[in-house]
Structure formats: structure tokens, C-alpha cells
């Protein structure tokens, strides 16, 4: 399918790379279909691009490589919308991957990450949701003191099954 993007032009991606956010994300509740673009496979950051709005794309990164002490306590009940139901009959935890949204201030080079509301992806069902952590006091705008560390991060935690390499 064709995905128009402001940053990367017109892309052709497989239907099975489209990720469904049942509630969109705060700020864009009407946008349910997104895809992960990795223009440079070397960097530990990707773009979460809205399929239906060419302008809307967010930088996302693996929080473990940026904040080794990040301990996001995720309540399983918050994952119900993306098909995670853990019960005594069904105790297996599906393949989940977490990313945090980065905001870049291009005037001063300051990069911040939203540690309060990570995005959780269910790789098997290709669904995702941005959840607000119920516990902990993480910031919505946590400064990255060393943005260049992201350049060294490798991405092979399952997200590569959903990523589209755009090769720009």
C-alpha cells in the first residue's frame, strides 16, 4: 500500500507492516493506522508515521539504551486494548516491545523523551497503545543528556518485524 509522508515522500509498504492503535494516541485519537520507518537501520531510533496523515510522524526510541535505569511498571490491565489478556488459563506473555517518544528542539539540540507514557507494541497482533504509567514519577519531557548514545543502540528486540527500511 502507498503511504504518503512529508519527511520521506511516497512510500510503498506491505499491509502486514501496518500497526493498529485502537485509540490512536493522545493528540491524534483519530489516527489508528501507523507504521515504523527506519531510514537508517544503524540508529536506535525510528519514525512512527501515521498512514493517513503525511505530516504526522514521531521519533521513537528504545528506552533501555537511553535510560538503563528506566523501570516502567506496566499494569497488564492497560494492555487489554492491544490483545493482552493474561489469566491462569492463558499465562503466556506475548511478545511486547516498548518505545518512548522523543521530542527534538532543533534550535538548541535538546532531545527529551516521554518516559511517563511509553508506547507498547504487541508484535504478534500488530497492535499498539500509548499508556500512562500508573506508578513512578517519570517525566513527560525527560532530557537526554547524551543523544549520541542513540546512534550506538541496536534494534533487534522484535521491532524489526514491524519496521520498514526506507533507505534514505
Amino acid at each position: 500500500m502507498i503511504v504518503n509522508t512529508t519527511r520521506f515522500g511516497k512510500l510503498t509498504i506491505d499491509e502486514d507492516k501496518v500497526i493498529n492503535f485502537p485509540f490512536g494516541i493522545p493528540g491524534f485519537p483519530e489516527l489508528h493506522k501507523w507504521c515504523i520507518l527506519t531510514p537508517d537501520g544503524q540508529l536506535g531510533i525510528s519514525w512512527l508515521q501515521a498512514v493517513k496523515d503525511a505530516d504526522v510522524a514521531l521519533l521513537v526510541a528504545d528506552p533501555d539504551s537511553l535510560f538503563p535505569e528506566y523501570n516502567a511498571e506496566i499494569d497488564e490491565r492497560d494492555l487489554g486494548p492491544i490483545g493482552v489478556t493474561i489469566s491462569p488459563d492463558n499465562p503466556e506473555v506475548p511478545d511486547l516491545v516498548m518505545r518512548v517518544v522523543l521530542t527534538v528542539d532543533r534550535d538548541n539540540g535538546v532531545v527529551t523523551a516521554n518516559l511517563r507514557a511509553p508506547i507498547v507494541f504487541n508484535i504478534g497482533t500488530r497492535q499498539a497503545i500509548q499508556i500512562a504509567l500508573r506508578r513512578g514519577d517519570y517525566s513527560v519531557r525527560e532530557t537526554l543528556t547524551r543523544p549520541t548514545e542513540v546512534a550506538k543502540a541496536t534494534v533487534n528486540d522484535g521491532m524489526e518485524q514491524l519496521s520498514v527500511a526506507t533507505g534514505t
Partner: peptide
């Protein structure tokens, strides 16, 4: 919290003139 996330997402998603300048920030030596 929802409002704060909403605001952060909108700021994060704002289209920019040059995607390359963002990568420059990540590759620039400290």
C-alpha cells in the same frame, strides 16, 4: 496526564524543514 501527553505528542509530531538536521543532533559529538 492525558493533556501533558497530548501536548508532548503534538510537539513531537510537528513537521520540520529538514529531517537530516535531527539526525545531525544525534550524531553530533558532545
Amino acid at each position: 496526564i492525558y493533556r501533558a501527553i497530548q501536548k508532548a505528542n503534538r510537539a513531537a509530531a510537528a513537521p520540520d524543514e529538514s529531517t537530516q538536521s535531527i539526525y545531525d543532533i544525534f550524531n553530533k559529538p558532545k
